[in-house]
């Protein structure tokens, strides 16, 4: 049984989501309303999937996602946010979240996203694809030395089609690829961004550390 933890500061919403998950056959191992509590609970109850709201009273959502990524074993994080704060979503995904869904998504969309997250797939909504595309463009425009992550032409093509609302199957048909290949391309774009983010964090930490001496 897939173990799910729900993190949201709104009790009504939290309970509704937990009920939907339980009805769909998931084991809801914890429901918490704060970020710090969420990190502690995740270490104790070891969920497979964390459904995370980005607006929490005590911590920024991206930071919660980053701390969850350090938990052993790291749970997969699905961001479920009413937030129109696109920066927050992008930061959370760079910090390790593997999917993003708006709260207004239907129950079916939500359950499907949890299932895919549990299976290890990235849940790429068109909105997230747009954010990731934008982030690669920003990095490309910013780095002159070109040591930042780059998208291949194929990856760009796939990501743009995702952002335009095509399903993986439609993309596979249009580009004459297998469904799995499309999925891999999408996964790669996210993986490279998360890796770059970790490298940047380490570089930042080293620079700060050297300065402190």
């Amino acid at each position: 049984m897939v173990r799910v933890m729900v993190v949201d500061d709104h009790p009504m919403w939290r309970d509704g989501v937990a009920r939907d998950l339980a009805e769909a056959g998931y084991e809801v191992v914890a429901t918490v309303g704060e970020g710090r509590q969420a990190v502690r609970a995740a270490a104790a109850v070891r969920p497979d999937v964390v459904v995370l709201d980005l607006r929490l009273p005590d911590m920024a959502g991206a930071e919660v996602a980053a701390r969850l990524a350090e938990v052993e074993p790291p749970p997969r994080v699905l961001v479920l946010s009413a937030s129109a704060e696109q920066d927050d979503v992008l930061e959370a995904v760079k910090a390790g979240a593997s999917g993003y869904l708006v709260k207004s998504a239907s129950r079916e969309e939500f359950l499907d996203a949890v299932r895919r997250t549990a299976e290890g797939d990235a849940v790429f909504t068109p909105g997230l694809a747009g954010l990731v595309l934008g982030e690669y463009r920003r990095l490309a425009a910013q780095d002159v030395q070109a040591d930042g992550p780059r998208l291949t032409e194929r990856e760009t093509e796939v990501l743009r089609l995702v952002a335009k609302g095509l399903s993986y199957k439609q993309i596979a048909d249009r580009l004459v690829l297998s469904h799995r290949t499309v999925q891999n391309h999408v996964q790669n774009t996210l993986g490279k961004l998360q890796l770059h983010n970790r490298v940047e964090l380490v570089r930042y930490a080293i620079e700060r550390g050297l300065d402190a001496d």
């Binding site: 500061d9 709104h10 009504m12 919403w13 509704g16 009413a82 709260k103 129950r107």
Partner: peptide, 18 residues
């Protein structure tokens, strides 16, 4: 608004559809 009204509206939307 984000912490209250939006959450409730999203909830109404979701439950209503169900």
């Amino acid at each position: 608004i984000h912490d209250s009204v939006l959450q409730v509206l999203a909830l109404v939307q979701r439950r209503g559809r169900q």
